[in-house]
């Protein structure tokens, strides 16, 4: 793991109208680092990672992702997004395209890769997420867990350097959560830089290099997982962990 930051956010603030969603947030992520962000709902976790690929634009502060300065109206936004993949809570697969077409359309239309090469890449990553046999189906014909794995493969097909996960298992039935987490663990083992918003603490313990706890738009705690789970320094974080680890 190199020590060079690939995401560097300084003093980010974000307003939705009058709502102060991010308050003076600074965070830096090194290349190859796996960061898990947790916190109660409405704490700004999703907003933060959506800023990283410019789906939201921060109101003030500086944000540099993979050497590209991110700000509203930047011409480099599309170049940035080609380096930063995003996996959504609701999968957001393209329902009118087959699984294979879902994976090929980005490389073909955005990266101008040939059809043959795009298909080869698509099949490679479908193998990687363990559903090569679903290539010709439409998303609606797949289970939630399979859809989310297709969505991960879709991001991988863009050969991104950073992957953002916005509560990837929150919309899944319990029995499908593990098949998605397994794929994410395997992805972590390849050395991909990952920023994951999730409440899956088992996953966090297994792969995280750094745990981040947010509340009310602020980063309250940043710690390696051993320390985070055993001796969190803030009371809020301790209470939150007690609540979600109770069961």
């Amino acid at each position: 793991m190199s020590s060079q930051p690939i995401i560097e956010a300084r003093n980010l603030d974000k307003f939705f109208g009058k709502f102060h969603a991010l308050k003076d947030v600074s965070i830096s992520v090194r290349q190859g680092e796996r960061v898990v962000v947790c916190g109660p709902s409405g704490s700004g976790k999703s907003t933060l990672i959506r800023c990283f690929n410019a789906l939201e634009s921060h109101s003030s502060g500086t944000l540099v992702v993979d050497g590209i300065e991110v700000f509203e109206g930047s011409k480099d936004v599309r170049r940035l997004r080609q380096e930063v993949g995003m996996v959504f809570q609701q999968f957001n697969l393209f329902p009118h395209l087959t699984v294979l077409q879902n994976l090929m359309i980005g490389p073909m239309k955005v990266r101008k890769v040939s059809r043959d090469q795009a298909e080869e890449t698509a099949r490679k990553y479908l193998d990687r997420v363990h559903i090569p046999e679903q290539a010709e189906k439409y998303p609606a014909q797949l289970s939630g867990g399979q859809q989310q794995r297709v969505a991960i493969a879709r991001s991988l097909c863009m050969e991104t350097r950073i992957m953002l996960f916005d509560e990837p298992t929150s919309a899944l039935d319990p029995e499908m959560i593990n098949e998605v987490l397994d794929v994410m663990v395997e992805l972590a083992e390849t050395g991909m830089t990952m920023v994951v918003v999730t409440h899956e603490m088992g996953f966090a313990r297994k792969v995280a290099d750094t745990m981040v706890f947010m509340e009310e738009g602020r980063i309250v705690e940043v710690a390696p997982p051993e320390q985070f789970f055993t001796a969190p320094s803030s009371d809020r974080c301790r209470m939150f962990l007690a609540q979600i680890l109770e069961h």
């Binding site: 170049r79 997004r81 995003m86 959504f88 609701q90 980005g106 239309k109």
Partner: peptide, 17 residues
């Protein structure tokens, strides 16, 4: 759905694409 826009944008598509 708005998520379709977000998915399209996050794989680097322009508005036109």
């Amino acid at each position: 759905a708005i998520g379709q826009w977000e998915a399209a944008k996050s794989i680097g598509m322009s508005t036109g694409q």
